[in-house]
Amino acid sequence: MNSTMLPQRWILPAAVILLTLGLGACQRVVSIDLNKADPHIVIEGVVTDGPGPYTVSITKTGSYFEPSLVFPTVSGATVVLRDNAGTIDTLREAAPGKYVSSRLSGVEGRTYQLSVVAEGKEYDGTSVMPQKIRIDSVYTTVLRAPDGDRGYNIFVKFKDPPTQENYYRVIVHTNMMPPDSITGQRYLLVSDKLLNGNEATYQIRASRNIDPGDTLTVALFSVDRATYEYYSTLRNILSFDRSPTALAPANPNTNLSNGSLGYFAALTADSVHIVLR
């Protein structure tokens, strides 16, 4: 339960690198020819227990070495969100490829279903909004990195319920910096495999771009198993977290049907703000 630890699969490769750096191991930028894949559909939809509207965005993949912040969007799709309380909400395209809800609300315990018909194909996904787990407290201690940088150990306390199979995602950011940029880690994911039913203290090491006086926001998402699996298989392929000896990468495991990339999640969120001293 300690994210200051390197992920375990990284320990040995990291050691190999440390060991061989002494012998003059090096890295350099090389040019590689990659195939240009045909554009493929990407659907992303999230329903939270906060107030709507909820957004579903539909885009396409682009070329690897020439990415842009603007990817092709898919307009004119039929996008419907349903819950198991009988709500049916047909989403409105508010901007190209961006579809927003009007009637649906996120309630813990309910099952949500997304259906998309785009370019003649149908894609579906289902997600169950888990019980909301609240953060008990957040506190920090000052961290002195070996290189002299000042940072913080951030401790997030919460109580894991005695039921098995609870999955969490923790997000930390400051008013100055977005998520990832203060911890250098992409997905802070917790499952209760080893801590089921315990008081959990999740420790995060934040050592970059962080100063006294910044407002720190810590959010705890409770997600279902499919969403956890999506995030963890997504994390596996994000280059920062890939060890040099990792197994062959593959697209993340999605709960969407018919070969769509992306995911659909119903999740609950609790967040706490503190001012760093």
Partner: peptide, 19 residues
């Protein structure tokens, strides 16, 4: 080895696409 053949945007991140 497996290298990406494209990129896409999900959850506010650029994600490699494998074919």
């Amino acid at each position: 080895v497996t290298f990406p053949s494209g990129n896409y945007w999900v959850d506010g991140r650029l994600v490699p696409y494998y074919t």
